[in-house]
Amino acid sequence: MVNTEEQRLDLIKYCDYFIDLLGSFPQVDHTPEGRMKAQVIWLKERAENNDLTLPVDKNLLSTIRYIYTDGVLMFHASSPDKAYREIEVPMQRIIAIAKNGKLIYKPEYATFAVRYAEALISVLKGASRSLSDEETGLIDELADIKAGLSNGLLVPPLGNPKGLYPNYLAVDTYNPTISDLPKGKEYIKTISSIVFSGTRPDAWVDLETADHDTKNL
């Protein structure tokens, strides 16, 4: 796992988001808003002081982990249909950075994500065995993902692919059905992290390293 200036600044940004959102709530232990505010202020202060090595001990993030799982702050969204983007995603990103030391996917990395989609399409089309119906359907879904990333209409993270990409969900199990195909598991897991979790590979520290990592897929 890496520790970068980008992660530090991203963490501060998402902490600020919740500090502003919960601005009128005091830091108290008996409300979820108060506990959440205290958690992000603690994280922000340490990030600003360059006193935060990633990943942070998960026990020190127990408040945000519990609140994220419980969903108790979802009603703070501007409308119910925006709760995922306005509340869940920012919390996901704080956890991804602080607990897991991950790098956040951003639109400027679309070219490199598309290369992974193209590589997996090529693997599927060149498979030496017959593909299942779901694996065949995955090709079309990957083409849709590729187009969406390219034109900016697909904005990670999408969350669970259920209802969006049913074939993808059927193929990408704990041990993907295409694990027997050359680099099939590596490719689909990377795409899943980008598209559904909104995080990029650890090797993609910057655009140059992302280009180097994907140039020969």
Results as ranks from 00 to 15, higher is better:
Arg115His: 11
Arg115Gly: 06
Arg46Gln: 09
Gly159Tyr: 03
Arg46Ala: 02
Pro55Arg: 04
Ala117Gly: 00
Tyr168Asn: 04
Asn49Met: 13
Arg129Ser: 10
Thr111Phe: 06
Val123Lys: 09
Ser78Ala: 06
Glu135Met: 05
Leu149Arg: 13
Met74Gly: 00
Leu149His: 13
Ile104Tyr: 06
Gly71Trp: 08
Arg93Asn: 15
Leu60Ile: 01
Ile67Cys: 07
Val114Pro: 03
Tyr168Glu: 01
Leu52Trp: 12
Asp140Glu: 14
Gly152Met: 02
Tyr66Val: 07
Ala83Ile: 06
Ile94Val: 12
Ala110Asp: 11
Tyr105His: 11
Val72Asp: 04
Asp57Ala: 14
Asn167Gly: 12
Asn167Val: 09
Asp51Glu: 06
Ala147Asn: 08
Tyr165Cys: 08
Ile145Phe: 08
Arg93Ala: 00
Glu134Ala: 15
Ile145Gly: 04
Tyr116His: 15
Tyr168Gln: 00
Tyr174Asn: 14
Tyr105Glu: 07
Leu158Ala: 08
Leu138Tyr: 12
Asn50Gln: 09
Thr136Phe: 14
Leu73Asp: 10
Thr53Val: 10
Asn167Trp: 12
Arg93Gln: 15
Asn49Asp: 11
Asn49Thr: 01
Ala77Gln: 02
Ser132Cys: 04
Pro90Trp: 09
Ser78Leu: 05
Tyr116Pro: 04
Leu61Gln: 05
Arg93Tyr: 14
Val56Ala: 02
Ala119Ser: 08
Asn167Glu: 07
Lys99Ile: 01
Glu108Ala: 04
Arg129Met: 04
Pro157Phe: 03
Lys125Gln: 15
Arg65Gly: 02
Glu88Leu: 10
Ile95Arg: 00
Leu60Trp: 01
Asp144Ala: 14
Asp81His: 12
Thr173Glu: 05
Ile64Asp: 12
Ile67Thr: 03
Pro156Gly: 09
Lys82Trp: 11
Ala127Phe: 12
Phe75Tyr: 14
Leu52Gln: 10
Leu142Glu: 03
Tyr66His: 13
Ser132Pro: 00
Arg85Asn: 12
Leu73Ser: 11
Gly159Asn: 03
Ala117Met: 14
Glu118Gly: 12
His76Asn: 10
Arg46Thr: 01
Thr53Ile: 03
Leu138Ser: 06
Leu142Val: 06
Val89Leu: 08
Asn49His: 02
Pro156Lys: 13
Lys146Gly: 01
Leu158Val: 07
Tyr68Arg: 15
Gly148Pro: 09
Lys146Asp: 01
Arg85Pro: 04
Phe75His: 15
Val89Ile: 15
Tyr84Trp: 13
Asn151Leu: 05
Ile95Asp: 06
Ala127Gly: 09
Ala110Ser: 15
Thr111Arg: 12
Gln92Pro: 13
Lys146Arg: 15
Asn175Ile: 09
Tyr84Ser: 07
Tyr174Ile: 12
Glu135Asp: 08
Leu60Thr: 01
Ala127Arg: 11
Leu73Pro: 10
Leu73Ile: 02
Tyr84Arg: 13
Lys82Cys: 10
Ala117Ile: 08
Leu169Pro: 07
Arg85Cys: 03
Met74Asp: 13
Phe112Met: 10
Leu120Trp: 15
Gly152Phe: 01
Ile94Pro: 10
Ala113Val: 05
Arg129Lys: 09
Ala110Cys: 08
Pro107Phe: 07
Phe75Thr: 12
